[in-house]
Amino acid sequence: MALAELNAAVLLLGLTAYAVLGGADFGAGFWDLTAGGARRGARLRGMVKNAMGPVWEANHVWLIFVLVVFWTAFPRAFGPVMQTLYVPLYLAGVGIIFRGAAFALRGEAATIVEARLLGGAFALASVAVPFFLGAVVGAVASGQVPAEGAGDAWESWTGPFPLYIGVLTVGAGAYIAAVFLAGDSVRVGQEDLARAFRWRALAAALVTGVLAIAGLFVARSQARGLYDGLTSGGGVVAVVVSALAGVVALALVWREHYEPARYASAVAVAATVAGWGLAQRPDFLPGALSLDEAAAGRPTQIAILVSMGIALLILAPSLWLLFRLTLAGRLDTDFHPIAAADRRDEP
């Protein structure tokens, strides 16, 4: 396997982790947005905040990880992508500011107005960010980015395929989030919330599944290269694995085995991302730039692989510790519904 492909694998691995963990985070925001009125949604929102608290920062560092590996390992693709897709990237960036800040600060909000404002900003941004990031991926995958640099700033990502990928990203995040949150609800002993999230997971799975199947047809007309890749060779395997894992996860949620469902859903998403990578191999920017052309020089690529190996040795145990503590409920705060007028710090 060529060096460039190994580095692409590192990049995709980071992207997968971000899609699963960051996606779950964004999805949680989606459920926050759709939880209903202040009173009705209070318990649901409380659960969302409770589950995200300790892990959300670690989940979002994956994005930084993806970006730095991207520009270090594939600088010649990074420039064109940034020059072409700066509009959705900028919008996603602003969304990230709002979301992160609103979430970090919401715990400290005290009055109705504050909580509504911060909560609204958080939830809206949670939907906007994955949508725009998905659109960026869709634009890259459907070959809208020319190798020479600036492509069309608007048309490149407002075609049906990029927009479709944006919607799919939001849907997949919402689904994963519902599965995770159902599991978390069981852990803190909120059975009614677990049921609520179970229904949401099933509904999101249905929508996302239909979207994914429809997506093959969209891809066929809009991104022919990608479609051909997905229906031949390694691409097919990935699609099949993804579909199977999706069905298994669905069955597990149905039977209320949320913990194994977590992993099955993660596999489904991972297989989709891997399928994308396999489908457009050996191109980085389809039809414009191959992996080898986009890649940095040999020493840099080796340096990345070595340092990522070392990083894995340090980070893997740390992450394991964090998730183990989280899943064991050691980092849970006491459960509080978030109603608009709630102020838990006052006696």
């Binding site: 730095v68 520009w71 270090t72 010649r76 990074f78 940095a296 990345i304 340092s307």
Partner: peptide, 15 residues
């Protein structure tokens, strides 16, 4: 970034 990303990107990756 396109020209020099590969030169100094390592440090950012470690950061």
């Amino acid at each position: 970034m396109e020209r020099f990303g590969e030169v100094f990107g390592m440090a950012f990756a470690l950061e």
